[in-house]
């Protein structure tokens, strides 16, 4: 087998790379393998993107509706279309994430380890998240309490959850 990179020398180094469950193989000669660090990173990017494009562009045309009838998916804030996004690999504005939401989950699952942020939450912009994380935690405790038939504790947790929900206007 010839080296995938220089197409000159025999491939003697065989690499596998797995990200988010997606496995890719590389076959390189000794020389290219020594210089590979960055080449692989680039190949991965190209791979990810081509892959997700071909995958995503096909997934969500609703059955029965010819796809050319649908208006192109477009961000109503910055005007970028989904097609433009896939061409450049960059969003136009923060709102694009909302505008392209229907197609984003599949994309994010492919390039990230999940579709939900679990890291730092900013003090000002993140109040809602902090409340949501607290609620999730309380609901988990509630389920555990019910499962263990600790009904007094469960009632107490239910009150806490109700309070928190009311405070956030649910």
């Amino acid at each position: 087998m010839l080296c995938q990179r220089c197409h000159e020398r025999q491939a003697t180094v065989h690499l596998k790379k797995v990200v988010s469950g997606e496995e890719t193989e590389y076959h390189l000669c000794e020389v290219c393998a020594m210089e590979q660090g960055d080449w692989i990173a680039k190949a991965m990017k190209a791979f990810d993107f081509n892959h997700l494009l071909s995958g995503l562009l096909n997934t969500d045309s609703s059955p029965g509706i010819p796809s050319q009838v649908q208006a192109p998916l477009r961000c109503d804030v910055c005007g970028m279309t989904y097609q433009q996004f896939t061409d450049v690999g960059r969003f136009g504005c923060p709102h694009c994430y909302k505008s392209f939401a229907p197609r984003l989950n599949a994309l994010l699952r492919r390039i990230q380890s999940s579709t939900t942020h679990t890291g730092k939450v900013p003090n000002r912009a993140g109040e809602a998240v902090q409340r949501r994380r607290r609620l999730e935690q309380l609901r988990k405790q509630l389920n555990q309490a019910i499962a263990a038939e600790r009904y007094e504790e469960a009632a107490h947790l239910r009150d806490q959850i109700r309070q928190l929900e009311q405070a956030s206007g649910h």
């Binding site: 994430y97 994010l108 900013p122």
Partner: peptide
């Protein structure tokens, strides 16, 4: 900051 409740920092 541009921050989304689910997606984090945009």
């Amino acid at each position: 900051y541009a921050f989304d409740d689910t997606l984090g920092y945009l």
